[in-house]
């Protein structure tokens, strides 16, 4: 403990850092699950309605695509502020973990959807044609061909999205969502306690590294079968 005190003189409550860690993980977990639930169908929709695909619908594709691009081009910090009324409407607060999740999901789901669209396009056209020749319905093709065949790419997309979400949660700290970013911002930046900054950044690096390793493992397991 002495050692820690010597290295990080300003940190008097390690429990706070622990709670911030848990908050970050909760925000990440909650928003990742919702991002996948919304982004995956959206990605499938983008893929199916695209030009030359299974259900080409140029207008629907153009509208979805535009919406996705708009949400992706707004910097996350701005998106959070703009979305505050929506957030309040959805979860009844603009603060804390609950307040952070709606903007995180709205920011990340379009990004994830694009990655899913790209992963689905990697599926061999011939395999889709073969299943059509076997009399598969559109739903059967999505469920039993596209998603399983693209699962390596989809897991890679989930990994990339999770890491982007870690960055977003840290930004959320600036407007009061809690977690490691909040800690780094309040103590490290506003109060010049740079040891707080150091510890939180180190923890974020470890988190990102763990996510990447886990993601890579899953991807290697499913790819190149």
């Amino acid at each position: 403990m002495n050692m820690l005190q010597k290295l990080f003189p300003n940190i008097d409550d390690w429990g706070e850092i622990g709670r911030a860690c848990i908050d970050t993980l909760l925000m990440l977990g909650g928003s990742l699950v919702l991002t996948i639930l919304i982004g995956l169908p959206l990605g499938v929709l983008l893929y199916l309605t695209g030009k030359g695909q299974l259900r080409p619908m140029p207008k629907l594709y153009a509208i979805t695509s535009l919406l996705v691009n708009i949400l992706r081009s707004v910097p996350f910090i701005i998106l959070m502020i703009v979305l505050m009324p929506v957030t309040y409407f959805l979860v009844g607060t603009k603060l804390g973990i609950r307040g952070a999740i709606p903007p995180l999901v709205i920011g990340a789901a379009p990004f994830f959807a694009r990655l899913v669209e790209t992963a689905l396009r990697e599926v061999q056209q011939g395999v889709i044609e073969a299943s059509q020749a076997m009399g598969a319905s559109l739903w059967q093709i999505v469920r039993h061909v596209l998603l399983p065949e693209a699962r390596g790419g989809i897991f890679a997309s989930i990994t990339v999205t999770a890491i982007a979400l870690v960055g977003y949660t840290a930004m959320g700290g600036a407007i009061g969502s809690g977690g490691l970013g909040d800690l780094a911002y309040r103590y490290g930046y506003l109060s010049y306690k740079s040891d707080y900054m150091l510890v939180t950044v180190a923890l974020l690096i470890v988190l990102v590294q763990l996510l990447q390793m886990l993601g890579d493992r899953i991807v290697t397991r499913y790819k190149q079968r």
């Binding site: 061999q124 011939g126 073969a130 020749a133 076997m134 009399g135 598969a136 319905s137 061909v145 499913y222």
Partner: peptide, 22 residues
């Protein structure tokens, strides 16, 4: 009805088109 008919017609391909994940 077309999907039902297609089940009665088998097809094989130059590049096999098997499901790599199965």
């Amino acid at each position: 009805a077309l999907r039902a008919q297609r089940r009665r017609i088998g097809m094989i391909f130059q590049h096999f088109n098997l499901l790599a994940s199965q």
